[in-house]
C-alpha cells in the first residue's frame, strides 16, 4: 500500500498535527512514512499544509505532486489542490469551511464532512481533524483506529492527554460519517 495525502487549511486548525498523528500511526504499524510541512512563503499569510506519505515500501520524494487523498479545511485549500488529486483518489472537505456550493461543483470524488461544526459542539475545534482522520480510516483502512490512540499519546503534549478519550470519540464519529 502507498497513500499520498495532502492536508490543507489555515494555521491553528491542527493541520500539521493531524499529519503527525497519521505519520506516527503509520510507524506504529511498521510502515514507512514522510511528513513534509509548508514552511516557506506559503506559511506567511496564514495558510498551512502538509504532505504525508504512508507506504509499505521505500518512499521517494516527500513532496506530493498528485495526492490520493486531499483533506481540505478551507476554501482556498481546495482551490489550490483540487485539480492535482488523482482520478482514483478522493477529497475530504469540511462542509462549513469549504462551503457546500464548492463541494457540489467539484469534479472529483468528494466527501462533504461536517467536521468543524461537530467539533465545535464537542467543545473544541481541534476535534475536527480527528473526525477527518476517522473518515480517512473508514475509506482507506490505512491503519487500525486503535493505533491512533497510541499515536496521540506520542504526538500530544502530556497536558493534553486527558483529552484523548474525546479525541477518540471524534475519530469514531468520523468513521460513522
Amino acid at each position: 500500500m502507498n497513500y499520498e495525502i495532502i492536508i490543507a487549511g489555515f494555521g491553528g486548525q491542527g493541520i500539521l498535527s493531524a499529519g503527525r498523528i497519521i505519520s506516527v500511526s503509520a510507524i506504529l504499524e511498521g510502515k514507512n512514512t514522510t511528513w513534509f510541512p509548508s514552511y516557506g512563503p506559503e506559511m506567511r499569510g496564514g495558510t498551512a499544509n502538509c504532505h504525508v506519505i504512508v507506504s509499505d515500501g521505500e518512499i521517494g520524494s516527500p513532496i506530493i505532486n498528485n495526492p490520493d487523498v486531499l483533506i481540505c479545511m478551507t476554501k482556498p485549500a481546495i482551490d489550490k489542490f483540487e485539480s492535482y488529486v488523482k482520478n482514483t483518489g478522493f477529497i475530504l472537505a469540511d462542509m462549513s469551511l469549504v462551503g457546500e456550493d464548492k463541494i457540489k461543483s467539484s469534479k472529483k470524488q468528494i466527501f462533504s464532512i461536517d467536521a468543524a461544526k461537530k467539533a465545535g459542539e464537542m467543545g473544541h475545534k481541534a476535534y475536527a481533524m480527528l473526525i477527518m482522520i476517522g473518515k480517512l480510516i473508514k475509506e482507506t483502512k490505512i491503519f487500525k483506529p486503535e493505533t491512533v490512540e497510541k499515536a496521540l499519546y506520542e504526538v500530544l503534549k502530556p497536558e493534553l492527554h486527558r483529552l484523548i478519550p474525546d479525541d477518540m470519540a471524534a475519530l469514531a464519529m468520523g468513521m460513522e460519517m
Binding site: 503527525r20 514507512n32 512514512t33 514522510t34 511528513w35 510541512p37 518512499i59 513532496i63
Partner: peptide, 10 residues
C-alpha cells in the same frame, strides 16, 4: 537541503 531538514521521517 531545506526539504530534508524540515520533513519528518521514521
Amino acid at each position: 537541503d531545506g526539504a530534508l531538514g524540515q520533513m519528518m521521517e521514521n
